[in-house]
Simulated scan of single mutants.
Amino acid sequence: MKTIYVGQLCHGSTALHRLWALQQLGCQVYAIDTTLPFGRYGRTNRFKRLMLSIAFRTNQFVDWKRVDSNLHRLSKNDKWDILWVDKGQQLDPQTLRLFKARQPQAKLVNYSPDDMFNPVNQTVRWTLGIPLYDLHVSTKTYNIPELIHAGAKDALFVGNAYEPTIHKPYDLTPEEVKRLGSDIVFIGASEMERDQSIEYLASRGLKIALFGNGSAWNRYENLYPNVSIHPGFIVDANYAKALCASKIALGFLRKQNRDLQTTRSIEVPACGVFMLAERTQEHLALFKEGEEAEFFASNEELFNKARYYLDHPAKRETIANAGRQRCIISGYSNAERLQPVLKYLSSNKS
């Protein structure tokens, strides 16, 4: 299928992994990268952050990457089967209308790994565009009925996924283990509930490595010598190596997004790393508790299980290996997750 793919295609972006998956599945892909000039993972000065915030809230966007104009141009040329838009908060709805008018045979797909009914993820442009897509794809089960209620023509749930060329076990050097590793690792951003859980573990002496940005974490190194802070984003193989260097990887869920699972829920076990994550029905459906992953519902249970599995390495490694096998056997890779989407598009060509 001839496909135009619109999304943030910088290294570390799961949108790039989905593009690779579509290519693996046989799609001829023309890519339009929406990554801002100052980079998704680069440092952004205050002025740029302010301008971006104003743009999202007022619907007044600078088309940094000329996405709308590129789509106008491409809609005049060739014949396209799919226009795939990853989130697309900045895309002008009029561009979607024009593209569909010029390419009536093309299927317009909107994919999002985020809770798009969390106000911080929405823009006026995205909301106005909801009924213009032929299909919305979401990794959030609760977004499916919300999308239909908001006017979506159709909506499809797909589970989170991993990229096999990146999320896999790594043989690390002793230097890498020393630099990146700890007993427990968390990679992500600060959030109140997460910070409370991390401090609960730290105050009880567990060794923790934190990768990411968290203002609350800055004081941990002074308070807890057992906590190491690695500020900034870590992506791709470095992300996977940071997981593999530690014994237990924490799987926190973002409350603001109403998460029941995240990409980390799949990426951690895919790396062959023991995952200790928040207990939800979706997590329990993905991995057997006590056999393929472990889960917790309170800080006390989190600490008790972390302490137990640190003291029982054989059990921990057995569960970690089983979790990776579950990812492979159950088809949690990006390509396998996206196969049903392409099947849907092929069977709904009219």
Results as ranks from 00 to 15, higher is better:
Leu50Tyr: 10
Leu260Met: 13
Phe56Thr: 05
Glu291Lys: 11
Glu292Val: 05
Asp86Pro: 05
Asp171His: 12
Tyr5Gly: 00
Ile329Phe: 11
Leu310Asp: 10
Tyr239Phe: 14
Gln24Trp: 09
Tyr220Phe: 15
Pro340Arg: 03
Trp126Gln: 13
Glu294Asp: 15
Ser203Arg: 15
Arg326Cys: 13
Leu132Asp: 08
Leu284Val: 08
Trp84Asp: 08
Phe295His: 06
Phe99Asn: 01
Gly151Lys: 10
Leu345Met: 06
Asp78Phe: 11
Ile54Tyr: 12
Gly159Ile: 08
Trp217Cys: 07
Lys87Ile: 13
Arg46His: 13
Trp64Thr: 06
Asp68Met: 04
Phe47Gly: 08
Ser298Met: 11
Tyr30Cys: 11
Ser75Lys: 07
Tyr5Ala: 01
Gly159Tyr: 08
Thr141Leu: 14
Asn118Met: 14
Pro37Asn: 06
Gln105Ala: 15
Leu253His: 03
Tyr309Met: 04
Phe38Ser: 11
Leu243Gly: 00
Asp154Val: 07
Tyr308Thr: 07
Trp217Val: 07
Phe157Arg: 12
Ser330Ile: 02
Leu342Lys: 04
Asn110Thr: 14
Ser228Asp: 10
Asn304Gly: 10
Leu128Ser: 12
Glu300Tyr: 10
Asn110Gln: 15
Gly214Asp: 10
Glu175Pro: 00
Thr280Glu: 09
Gly12Phe: 04
Thr141Cys: 15
Ser265Cys: 13
Val29Lys: 09
Ala322Glu: 09
Thr14Ser: 12
Ile4Phe: 02
Ser228Cys: 10
Phe157Pro: 00
Val6Glu: 02
Tyr200Pro: 05
Leu201Ile: 09
Pro164Ser: 12
Phe252Tyr: 03
Ser203Cys: 10
Leu253Phe: 01
Tyr162Glu: 05
Phe295Gly: 03
Trp84Glu: 03
Thr262Arg: 11
Ser333Gln: 05
Val85Leu: 09
Asn304Cys: 12
Pro131Cys: 02
Ala21Thr: 02
Lys100His: 07
Tyr133Gly: 03
Ile144Lys: 04
Glu292His: 03
Tyr308Ser: 06
Ala245Gln: 01
Tyr133Leu: 04
Thr14His: 14
Ile319Phe: 05
Val158Phe: 11
